[in-house]
Design a protein around this nucleic acid. Structure first.
Lengths: 241, 241
DNA sequence: ATTTATTGTCTATTTTTTAGACAATAATAA
DNA sequence: TTATTATTGTCTAAAAAATAGACAATAAAT
């Protein structure tokens, strides 16, 4: 990794990613926990290289954490308050981790660079959790999936950012047909319904839900899925286009 | 105005404003024409001061050009391609205006600053054109309202930006109840319908349109408007809340 | 008083959404 | 082999919403 103080990044502009997954009827968000004393938890974030599209940068950050290349990813809001800064967060981190005392000139510069006011572009991604390969050798942070209803307190305004991402997801889900990105290649109609129920945190009527989804004309019906349960086997479906 | 090369602005981050107005059944956009040889037309743009919210900056830019303080203003998209730069635009401008030869050190620096890659945050505003007071002493640019269907070719990706703003406006108009911001304090139902027709570029059925708007429960009915026409006088309405 | 153009609103029709019902079926139990 | 059970897929009925058609009210001109 290059030095942050070099001019390879756009200054004072960052990307925060709200990476959604789905498991056990729960909508999840990927959270980074910093490996320092104190519970410092943040959204996966990063900066934009000079020669890089902002969208590319978001995709790179997503791939860095999940190994996933092609999935639903979309910009949803810019967080631009004048007091948006890592300073309070980093000062607290240094306070709880005295071994991190800043001595060297370069560390001082990094600290200054990192604690300036930042404008952040929020992106949200929808991924198939089963395809996520957490990076093995993350030095300073580890990642965990949290149920969106039980998020920990995150650094800075990251809880707000997640909330805004959920709001946007709910408003655009049907238009963008993005729910299927949370599921594996093939799935049952019940799976789709449970994804919707997790996202909107409310139940849907099965008969009408099935009609609505089929009327979208984006699902191909595959073979039946025999689960061993003592009842009619559901069909599997696949998202097309 | 401070020097651009000073650190008072966030570097490589700009705001482009799509300022919508409405007149004569036409949806209009405010365009700046630079006072140089060659037709250089751009969206009203600006930068963000270090101590300023991004939203504040957008509002400042809007007020600078229109004198309007309180009106509908909303962020809608970030334009972040790696090749987004004023360089081609500025080179062409210098080419056509040889008197602008860059000699001084400071001019050189300004040129470098201004022609770097920029990430731009798009905002759109909806204003009552009658309330707009164009700035009298604009040195290097003048503003004009254009029908959105007859926009000139704008610099950089500004035509794309306008299109994206229109798309967003159409998608969110009913939710945000923002159409009324294009009209004066009081207006007839016909005015509202014509605003909608200008925005969506399609006709609406009068009877059902009136019902839909009244069902929003955001209009107060005022006295009648006697136009002198030989027919029933329409009621005036006022947007509340 | 009659005519004209437009407005406000009502009702009928069509379409869409929601609710209710039931046959099909995969395994299990009798 | 034949009920039983739980769930799925789909149909129809009912309710709600959107669209289309109709008409009385009315402000000014004839």
């Amino acid at each position: 990794m290059h030095s942050l103080t070099e001019q390879n990044y756009i200054q004072q502009l960052s990307i925060d990613c709200v990476i959604f997954g789905y498991e056990n009827q729960q909508l999840k968000v990927l959270i980074s926990t910093l490996k320092f004393k104190g519970d410092f938890q943040v959204l996966p974030s990063g900066f934009i290289y000079q020669g890089e599209d902002v969208d590319e940068a978001a995709r790179r950050i997503l791939e860095d954490r999940t190994s996933i290349k092609d999935t639903y990813l979309e910009q949803f809001h810019v967080f631009g308050k004048a007091d948006r800064s890592n300073r309070a967060f980093l000062d607290r981190l240094i306070e709880l981790n005295p071994d991190l005392v800043i001595l060297h000139q370069q560390q001082r510069q990094q600290y200054e660079w990192f604690t300036r006011r930042f404008v952040s572009i929020g992106y949200y991604a929808l991924v198939d959790m089963a395809k996520v390969i957490p990076q093995k050798h993350e030095i300073d942070q580890s990642i965990t999936w949290y149920d969106v209803r039980q998020l920990p307190i995150l650094a800075m305004d990251h809880n707000e950012i997640v909330q805004k991402a959920i709001d946007t997801l709910r408003l655009t889900l049907d238009q963008r047909l993005s729910a299927f990105s949370l599921l594996p290649e093939s799935f049952t109609m019940k799976d789709v319904q449970e994804v919707y129920e997790a996202i909107y945190d409310k139940p849907f009527a099965r008969n009408n839900f099935q009609k609505k989804i089929l009327d979208m004309n984006v699902l191909e019906r595959l073979e039946k899925k025999f689960t061993g349960a003592a009842n009619k086997a559901p069909y599997l479906y696949r998202y097309i286009k």
